[in-house]
């Protein structure tokens, strides 16, 4: 008998904090790549830096919530400067290698034994949500959405998260309609032309890098609030998930990354569920250990197919999907 109980549960992925986190980070990546043409392969690094600044200041130094958030934003801005200064003057593929390297540097470094007192080593950091839950106005009882029960703290994260997503989307949408947005889109299309107009291309790229990175950081904060901060959740595969989400929805749209994140997580949890059901019924010959990697194969193949056959994604316009090389 096949067990289909996972089906209604996958619907809850639509609103899950993970979806919110990836929507925000992918929106940041859209600012980087979709609008400004920056090949950032270290978005996981931006997330990780922000998450660590938030969690360390909240748990180790007892900062209030607002100060921890501020620290996270300062941290990711500093990270953007650190990455941008050596690479933004160089050709695009250098930025891609340096950003992916920087994200890995962060992931290795926080797990150093000498830093364990601060970063929690490989175990990460628990308990950074105390300040956030202290201001939770929702009455303490269990709420049910679909078949999944939520505590008041779960709901609080979800509500704040989606308000953040809405605000960020509005911000990016307005930003890209502004003169600033037209300049960065111009840089994406033809850097030299924008330079010829007397604009400081380097400075605009840096600003775009900071804005996108800050969005990634906000996503990471939402991600760790209901669970904990785990360094290995911010490896290269996270960045590749974000790229898939962005390309799925449309790299030059505001709604694209958000809808992309929803589709991505629903599809992944559906595929996990189906594979688990089919292999328990011995229809697919996969052991428990072998089921985990399947989702990564799906993402990898999806990424290849998307980029080749529908580079504009679901919502994008074909004309804007031109990748400058």
């Amino acid at each position: 008998m096949l067990d289909w109980t996972f089906l209604p549960l996958t619907l809850n992925q639509i609103i899950s904090p993970q979806t919110i986190a990836y929507a925000l980070a992918a929106l940041g990546l859209t600012v980087h790549f979709g609008y400004s043409g920056l090949l950032n392969f270290g978005q996981a690094g931006f997330m990780s830096v922000g998450a660590y600044f938030f969690a360390i200041t909240a748990t180790r130094f007892g900062f209030p919530l607002w100060a921890s958030v501020l620290a996270a934003l300062v941290g990711s801005t500093a990270f953007a400067f650190l990455l941008g200064i050596p690479t933004l003057r160089l050709r695009a593929d250098y930025l891609s290698i340096v950003t992916i390297a920087a994200a890995e540097i962060i992931r290795y470094t926080v797990q150093t034994p000498n830093l364990t007192a601060l970063t929690g080593g490989s175990d990460g950091i628990n308990g950074s949500e105390a300040g956030f839950e202290a201001i939770n106005p929702i009455p303490d009882r269990v709420y049910k959405i679909g078949v999944q029960p939520y505590t008041n703290d779960d709901l609080w994260v979800i509500i704040v998260g989606w308000v953040l997503v809405g605000a960020a989307a509005l911000f990016v949408w307005q930003l890209m309609r502004s003169p600033w947005g037209r300049i960065v889109k111009g840089i994406r299309e033809d850097e030299d032309a924008v330079r010829a107009l007397g604009k400081n291309v380097y400075s605009f790229k840096m600003q775009a890098l900071i804005i996108g990175g800050v969005l990634g950081t906000l996503g990471a904060i939402i991600n760790i609030l209901p669970t904990s901060l785990q360094p290995d959740n911010y490896g290269t595969q996270t960045t590749f998930f974000l790229w898939t989400i962005m390309l799925l929805g449309g790299a030059t749209t505001v709604l694209g990354p958000i809808i992309g994140a929803i589709i991505f997580w629903v599809v992944l949890s559906l595929s996990d569920g189906f594979i688990a059901v089919l292999s328990t019924a011995n229809i697919v010959p996969l052991s428990q250990v072998q089921q985990g990697p399947v989702r990564f194969i799906i993402v990898g193949v999806a990424l290849m197919l998307l980029v080749v056959f529908r580079p504009q994604g679901i919502f994008g316009k074909k004309k804007e999907a031109y990748f400058s090389a």
């Binding site: 590749f240 990697p293 194969i297 990898g300 990424l303 290849m304």
Partner: peptide
């Protein structure tokens, strides 16, 4: 070239986890 690079990332992800299986 940039889409090609992204294809290689997808290929790397798919192959790597195929090896794991």
């Amino acid at each position: 070239l940039i889409p090609l690079m992204i294809v290689s990332i997808g290929l790397s992800l798919a192959l790597r986890y195929l090896f794991q299986i």
